[in-house]
Amino acid sequence: MKKISIISIIFAFVSSFALAVEVNIFSARHYDSDIQLYEKFTVSTGIKVNVVSGKDKALQKRIAEEGADCVGDLYITADAGRLGAFQAKGMLQRAGWSKAIKDSVSNNFRSAQWVGIAKRARIMYYSPERVSANDLNGMTYEGLSDPKWKGRVVIRKSNNVYNQSLVASLIKNNGKNATATWAKGVVANMARDSKGNDRAQILAVAAGEADIAVANTYYHALMLSGKKGAEQQAAAKKVMPFFPNQQGRGTHMNISGAGMLKHAPNKANAVKLVEFLLTKEAQEHIVNNTFEYPMIAGVSQNTLVPGADLSFKQDLKTSVKSYGDKQADALEVMLESGWK
């Protein structure tokens, strides 16, 4: 009897591993709506999703420290610069993305190790009272260093990854030296020392502290939605979005994405989850909750998001892979220019 019970315990223990139908996610995206998506995935596939949420750097540190013991399969975060830099540390592996994933996401928005699940653009917001159409005619990111904007520009700090990715894209297109000169010009044009998040930049324009701000598209939609209060909703209406570089390479694009962790124990399930995140149903959920742009075509728009119909010219020439590659250079350029 004793033998039988020991054998059955061992069998139960082993089978729990062999039959583990699950996928483990380390997510730096702190959206409740993401959890609802994972629940939908579990309902439709029977694969359980275990989520570890946390700040980006803390999660990266944990994954690195745990090494081969890390049970995480996917690392989900915002910004290709983060994914690229984490890949460069050797923390991700070739995922073997399925044909469905490759067909959904253009080569520009994925690597062998990670793939975009939603898009965002980093654009400008201006005060229609103080900035004329003529001022903005042919406006580019490069144009932010033009002395005509002296004391009128707000943008967040140099340690912010969205800025690092934007500057990385400028380095990729214009070279490091030209970008270093540009960064000095931008710092000279700042209305104040960099501070606050993207919404704070938009609010600064609405409050008359500056005339033009740089911020991601979904922040404006978030404010317009009223989720950040009536005051911010009213303030968001006082500024207008502007998509730069329309005559050239297009507006700077970035992604939220998922990377396959180096020691992922449930790789096949992880690929299935990414496939699910790229379905029309999941993409609609993302568009309506986080106000990002869908990664696939044919998803209905959320009209609060600037450029929701994606009719503006996106920069598809600069691969988002370069944001990680040039991240260190970008930070260096910004710091040396005195960008706080």
Binding site: E209, Q232, A234, A235
Partner: peptide, 19 residues
């Protein structure tokens, strides 16, 4: 104290719209 922060809301509710 931020732009459109709590103090702004208080002032607005007391004295109406203003810069």
């Amino acid at each position: 104290f931020e732009n459109y922060g709590t103090l702004f809301s208080i002032l607005k509710s007391l004295f109406g719209d203003g810069e």
